[in-house]
């Protein structure tokens, strides 16, 4: 075996870095398994917690015996007082509302607020953004990489310049423009500002530069129009780079908290997952960390799964486009 001190140190540093990055995720997943009491006391109960059964207060609250119900039951047991019957019924409810913390947390995640709706919104927004970005970026990148026209280099330098503009700097003007045309609180407000991705144009342009000109000429000889060259020749060869861009784009907009917070002001049906999470911040009863962490876990899972599936090609794409 080759043992080198340099390699060992390198790996030690990398492992340490990985641990630091993973730590919050570890806590998030672990908390999503634990009961409120375990979280608040910080008791050392391992990753999965003790899974000691708890009584779901919301469930009990919802199941509270009605006056009618108590009266009906009282007729069957005339020897008992109203109070007794009430307590018996309540105990029944409590028994049904007793569950392990993991079930409580994940159940509340989906019942407390319309999480599925938020997830659906997230999918609609990120997928639309990505598709439109591709529709805009591919032809633009193709033109910048492969066509000769007056002002091309200037156009490309504008693209590079736009890479330097921070989103937050133009958020207010964008918001005002959207408000003027009455688009706030719509999907359009969430999607339109992101449809032109200079990063996407830049990334795809760099990739297209590496595609041999002969391939494009072959397409022209075969009778393809410039647009069919883009969609039928360039797009298939650019899949790795496109996948890399997809991850950047989808992650950024799935996780985006800032922009939806700006343009979605009241319409709860349009909340994206990160905005939706605010709904779990209970006001007077304190914050329920378990359910919140369960929501967080649910929200990040699709991204992590997607990344793992595409990991190999994603790294390919990054290396190909020289963005290492």
């Amino acid at each position: 075996m080759n043992f080198s001190i340099g390699q060992t140190i390198k790996h030690a540093i990398l492992i340490l870095g990985a641990l630091i990055v993973i730590a919050p995720f570890y806590t998030m997943v672990s908390y999503s398994f634990k009961s409120q009491r375990e979280i608040e006391t910080g008791a050392d109960t391992g990753f999965f917690g003790s899974q000691e059964v708890i009584i779901d207060e919301f469930c009990v609250h919802r199941g509270q015996p009605e006056r009618e119900e108590v009266k009906d039951t009282l007729e069957l047991y005339p020897e008992k007082t109203e109070r007794d019957v009430y307590n018996i019924l309540l105990d029944e409810v409590k028994k049904n509302c007793t569950k392990k913390p993991v079930f409580f947390n994940y159940q509340s995640a989906f019942t407390f607020a319309p999480l599925l709706r938020y997830l659906l919104n997230g999918v609609i927004v990120t997928v639309s953004i990505f598709l439109i970005q591709v529709i805009v970026a591919l032809p633009a990148a193709y033109a910048l990489a492969k066509l000769r026209f007056w002002g091309r280099d200037f156009a490309f330098s504008l693209v590079l310049f736009c890479l330097l503009i921070p989103v937050h700097a133009i958020a207010l003007p964008l918001y005002i423009m959207l408000a003027k045309v009455g688009l706030t609180n719509t999907y359009a407000a969430l999607i339109i500002p992101w449809t032109i991705s200079v990063f996407g144009i830049f990334l795809m342009r760099q990739f297209f530069m590496t595609v041999p000109d002969d391939l494009i000429d072959a397409g022209r000889m075969d009778g393809m129009s410039e647009f069919s060259i883009i969609w039928k020749v360039m797009l298939p060869t650019a899949i790795p780079a496109l996948l890399a861009f997809a991850i950047f784009s989808v992650v950024a907009h799935w996780n985006d908290y800032f922009w939806p917070r700006v343009v979605i002001t009241g319409e709860r049906n349009l909340f994206t997952p990160p905005i939706g999470m605010r709904e779990y911040r209970a006001d007077s009863d304190g914050t329920f960390y378990g359910p919140i962490m369960a929501v967080s876990t649910v929200i990040v899972t699709p991204l992590i799964v997607a990344f793992m599936l595409a990991q190999k090609r994603f790294i390919e794409g990054i290396t190909l486009s020289g963005m290492k």
């Binding site: 391939l215 000429d217 072959a218 000889m221 020749v233």
Partner: peptide, 15 residues
């Protein structure tokens, strides 16, 4: 495409 000529390239340029 309308000149009805076919071209073979140095790099083959197969899709």
């Amino acid at each position: 495409a309308d000149r009805n000529l076919a071209m073979v390239f140095q790099s083959y340029a197969l899709y």
